[in-house]
Amino acid sequence: MSEGIKDHSELSEAAAQSRASVLRSRAESYIALSRHDAAIADLTEAIALAPDNARAWRLRGESHRVIERYEAALEDFGEALRLEPDSAYALGSRGQTYAAMGRLDEAMDDFEHALTLAPDSLWILEAKADALVDLDRLDEALAEHSKIISLNEELAYSWVARGDLYQRMQLYSEAIDDYGKALEADPDYVRALSRRGEALRMADRYEEALADLNRALELEPGNDRALGSRGAVLSELGDNEGALRDLDAAIELDPDYVWAFRVRGEILQELDRHEEAISDFTRALRLDSGD
C-alpha cells in the first residue's frame, strides 16, 4: 500500500510532482499484479499531489472498473476525459464500465467515439463487439470480429472470439473453422480445443469432439466446461458411466453449472434413476431462477 505523507503542503511543487510520478509508476506495477486496492491507494495520493494528471485518473478508474466499483470508475474516467478529451483509452474503458452496468447505449457512444480516435484498437473493437452481442445485434458484432481478424490474423484469441459468436448463432461449421484457425496459431490453446469440441458435438461429430475434449483435459484437467462437454459426448457415444464421472467432476468444480445438472439429470433419467434425476432438474431450475 502507499506509504502516504502527513502533509502534502510540506513538499515543494517539484518534490510533489516527483513523488506523484513514482506513485503512478508503482501503481502500474500493482495493476499488472492485479493488486488493485494498492494501486488505488497510490493513485489517490498521486492525484492529491498532482490533480491535473489525466493518466492517474484513468489508471485509478481502470482499477475501480476491474474490481467492479463502477460508479467510482465512471467518476474517474469522467475526470480523465475532462483533462484529456481525446483519450481513446479512457473512452474505451468508460465504455467497458457502462457495458458492465448494462448501460449499453452509453457504452456504444463511447466505443464509437474512441474508434474515431483509434480505429484499429483491437481491444476497443472487441469491447464494441461484446456490447453489440448484448444488444442482440449479432450480424454487426460478427462484422466487428471480422475486422479484428483482418487487422491481425495471428491472434488465436480473435479467431476463438468469432468462433464463439458463430456458435451462439448456431453456425457450427463456421465456428469449427475459426477454432481450427486459432489452433493453427496456438495448438495447445485449451479454450479453442474445448469450444471446438463443443461445436463438433453440436454437429454430431462425436469422435472428433471427443479427441478435442480429451486433449483439452490433458492440458487442463480441471477445466469444468470441457468436462461437462465430454460428459455429454460420452453419453451420445453410449458411455453413460463415463459421462456421469465427467459431469460429477464438472459439478464438483462448479456447483452452479446449470447445464451440467440438466445433462446429468437426463442421463440419470435414462438409467431409471428418477429420484436423482429429479434432484438434478430441481437444482437446475433453482439456479436458472437465481434462487
Rank of each mutant, 00 (worst) to 15 (best):
S2K: 03
H8K: 08
S9I: 06
A16P: 00
R24H: 10
R26E: 07
E28D: 12
S29I: 12
A32D: 11
L33N: 13
D37Q: 05
A38T: 07
E45R: 10
N53W: 04
L59W: 10
E62Q: 11
H64V: 09
V66S: 08
R69N: 11
R69S: 11
R69M: 06
E75A: 14
F77L: 09
E79C: 12
R82C: 04
D86V: 04
Q96E: 10
T97K: 02
A100K: 11
M101C: 07
E106H: 08
A107M: 05
A107L: 05
M108F: 12
D110G: 03
D120H: 15
I124F: 10
D130T: 02
D130N: 05
V133R: 12
L138N: 05
E140Q: 03
A141D: 09
A141Q: 07
N152R: 15
E154H: 14
L155P: 02
L155I: 12
Y157W: 14
V160G: 00
R162Q: 08
Y166R: 00
S173Y: 04
D178E: 08
A185S: 15
D186E: 12
D188P: 07
L193V: 03
R195M: 10
R195H: 15
D204G: 05
Y206E: 04
E207Y: 08
P221S: 04
N223H: 15
A226E: 00
L227S: 00
G228P: 04
G228T: 00
V233E: 00
D239S: 02
N240Y: 08
E241V: 14
G242D: 00
R245Q: 10
D248M: 12
L253R: 01
V258M: 13
W259G: 01
R273M: 10
H274M: 03
H274C: 03
T282S: 13
L285D: 05
R286F: 14
D288W: 07
D291N: 10
